[in-house]
Design a protein around this nucleic acid. Structure first.
Length: 200
DNA sequence: CGTCAGATGATC
DNA sequence: ATCATCTGACGC
């Protein structure tokens, strides 16, 4: 059991932190998930970001210190987990879109009410469900043990990128940004066809 | 394989 | 009215 990643890990630009989160372990009690897919959001300059309309009660964590959770309810059903990055006062976050189960299979299966397979943790709503999160977890610090935290894991051998999912409401020039990152070899990802190997 | 509608409720 | 989604129903 390694310690949680320090706050300094999250205190970098979201485009640096997002791919670096791939392979890390998300822990809550007995449930451990290996992060396999993420998306970056950053205001200003990104009308897909929830911070686009300024500070509100819901998006307040986005503007706060890095290393905290930003959890919001989507479509009245799904609790979406984000990791706040950048400097205090900036508005950036990484959306956790998919994971691979590492431990706590029975607990995850119980919460989902079905078998665990590659589809069971691919999709941001399913991550919130597997970790039993709700908006009460917003603002929760992820850099200390207990509750919900992030620690080292197994980094991906290669990374794939693509445009972000479900942001048609954003300005056209922001819809196409290649700000979705995934473990290129993992089966636990969404919209695989829309991903391409990272050009580097 | 594909598209499509309904669920469901906080937020702006 | 909108929404960083999911599921099950259908058609090919």
């Amino acid at each position: 059991m390694s310690r949680p990643l320090p706050r300094s890990f999250f205190a970098r630009d979201v485009l640096e932190v997002a791919p670096d989160l791939l392979g890390r372990h998300l822990c809550r009690d007995g449930v451990v998930l290996r992060i396999t897919e993420v998306e970056a959001y950053r205001w200003p300059g990104d009308t897909a970001c929830h911070a686009r309309s300024g500070l509100t009660e819901r998006n307040a964590p986005l503007w706060g210190p890095p290393g905290r959770a930003y959890v919001y309810l989507c479509y009245g059903i799904h609790n979406m987990l984000n990791v706040v990055t950048g400097a205090d006062g900036e508005a950036q976050a990484v959306l956790i879109r998919a994971c691979e189960p590492v431990a706590g299979l029975e607990e995850i299966e119980r919460r989902r009410g079905g078998a665990t397979g590659p589809a069971s943790l691919a999709g941001p709503g399913k991550i919130g469900q597997a970790l039993d999160l709700d908006t009460g977890w917003s603002h929760h610090p992820l850099d200390r043990p207990g509750g919900l935290f992030i620690r080292a894991g197994d980094p991906p051998a290669s990374i794939a990128t693509g445009r972000r999912i479900g942001i048609d409401y954003a300005e056209p020039e922001h819809r196409c940004l290649p700000w979705r990152f995934a473990d290129a070899e993992s089966a636990w990802v969404t919209h695989r066809r829309a991903l391409r190997p990272e050009g580097r």
